[in-house]
C-alpha cells in the first residue's frame, strides 16, 4: 500500500474508532431509557417511578390469572421469580398470552396494583413442533428447558 493510502486508511479507522467510543458512551448513559420495560423487582424495590406511565416485563405466574366472567376484565401476577406485580387489565389479550408466558404490560402503578392499558406477549427464541412439546412435557423435560431461559 502506498503511504498516502495508508494515511487515509489510518484517518478513517481513527474516525470510526472515535465515533464508536462516542456512541458507546451515549448508549451507556442512555441504557436505562433504552430498556423497554422494568422488572417486578425494580417495582418492588422502588427503582421504577410510581404513578407514571411505564412498562413491566416478566412471566405470567402459574395459577394467578383470574377472569371476570361478565366482562373483559382480567387480573394476573407478573413475576421475575423474585417479586410479583399484580396487574389488572380490561381488553383482548394477545393469542400467545397464557400462564408461564413472558409478557410486557404498559400502564401505571396505583395503590400497589398495576393498571395496564396494553398487554403484549413476549416470545422467546425457541421454536418447536407441538409433538415435540408433548413428548418433552411427558418426560418432564419441558419445565427444565423453560426454567433455563
Amino acid at each position: 500500500m502506498n503511504p498516502k493510502r495508508k494515511q487515509r486508511l489510518l484517518i478513517i479507522l481513527g474516525m470510526v474508532f472515535g465515533l464508536g467510543i462516542a456512541v458507546g458512551l451515549v448508549m451507556y448513559a442512555l441504557s436505562q431509557n433504552i430498556n423497554l420495560f422494568f422488572t417486578p423487582t425494580q417495582i418492588a424495590t422502588g427503582t421504577a417511578p410510581n404513578d407514571q406511565f411505564i412498562r413491566v416485563g416478566g412471566m405470567v405466574r402459574e395459577g394467578s390469572v383470574s377472569r371476570d366472567p361478565t366482562s373483559l376484565k382480567v387480573a394476573f401476577d407478573v413475576t421475575d421469580f423474585d417479586h410479583n406485580v399484580r396487574v389488572t387489565y380490561t381488553g383482548i389479550l394477545p393469542d400467545l398470552f397464557r400462564e408461564g408466558q413472558g409478557v410486557v404490560v404498559q400502564g401505571r402503578v396505583h395503590d400497589g396494583l398495576f393498571a395496564a392499558t396494553e398487554v403484549l406477549a413476549k416470545h422467546d427464541e425457541n421454536y418447536m413442533p407441538p409433538e415435540v412439546t408433548e413428548a418433552l412435557r411427558q418426560s418432564g423435560q419441558l419445565d427444565k428447558m423453560m426454567g433455563k431461559n
Binding site: L36, L93, P94, D95, L96, F97, V104, E118, V119, L120, A121, K122, H123
Partner: peptide
C-alpha cells in the same frame, strides 16, 4: 398476532 402490536419502540 404474536405480540399483540404491529410496532413497539
Amino acid at each position: 398476532p404474536t405480540w399483540g402490536t404491529y410496532w413497539v419502540w
